[in-house]
Amino acid sequence: MLLDVLQGAEAGTFIIFLDSVNFSGRSLLKGYINAALKREDVVHVLELEVSEEELRAGLDTQCARRMYFHGGFADPLGWIKRSSFTVPQFTSEDILTLLTPVQQSKSAVLVIDSLSWLLRHLDPVVICKRLQEIKRGGAVKTIIGLLHSDMHQTSLVGSVCHLATTVISLGPRTQGQWALAKTTKRTKSGKVLQEEELFSIQEDLTVHSRVSHTVHTQAEPDSVEADPMANLTFNLRLSEMEREAKEKVALPFVFSQEKKSALLHPGQGAGQIMYEPDANDDFDQEDPDEDLDV
């Protein structure tokens, strides 16, 4: 499923790469950018955390021409008026003006590196609103955000992830080059798909994934259940003969079909009680007030 997300053709998606100090999600972000450039999307990057050179490294130079940087790295808060994008400019109108000079018929991908930086400098409520505006605006096909989960309160991470259509939380490397990715994808119909995968990123930034087996092995009980019938001093098993004999036994208090029919339709030779109620019969012995005519 991770590869499906990276190939992502759906419009109006908002993907969050959730990483922590144990494992940086930037390599996977570069993998995504690479995949997006390969399928001829226009990629706009809001670089706030690392420089343009660092993000460009390793990408195919031919493809990287369709990649536009809106720098906030050198001067994120606009103190020396050198950058094309500052944090307070994170509104849907300003983003749109950033995109328009290169707006083509091709679909645009907005990469935010990283959301954590924005969240530290703007009110989270404002960020959530503007992300939703950009997502619904239609100018951007996909929004990708990198979020460092250990930098914020869990409630804040939860709120931002609540807006996302896909959340990929990344875990530390378990063995060798493989790292763990837990993908949660919400479809339009409200269905939620979840999968845990191992992935690795090659030198040329292509991503390989395989099914994670760690989860299944954890679910297996580690100790073999002891058979309680193993060392018994008596017999709990029945042979066929014994079972037949057991089924023949008529149990007390059981109304079998035969017994029922025998009671309801008495046979020929059996005696019957005929009774016609008398006027002086006491119908209910328990009732003390039956003579009161109430």
Partner: peptide, 13 residues
């Protein structure tokens, strides 16, 4: 009560 209603109930403790 979600953040989109301009409410910070969900974002802050």
């Amino acid at each position: 009560g979600s953040a989109l209603w301009g409410d910070d109930l969900c974002c802050r403790e």
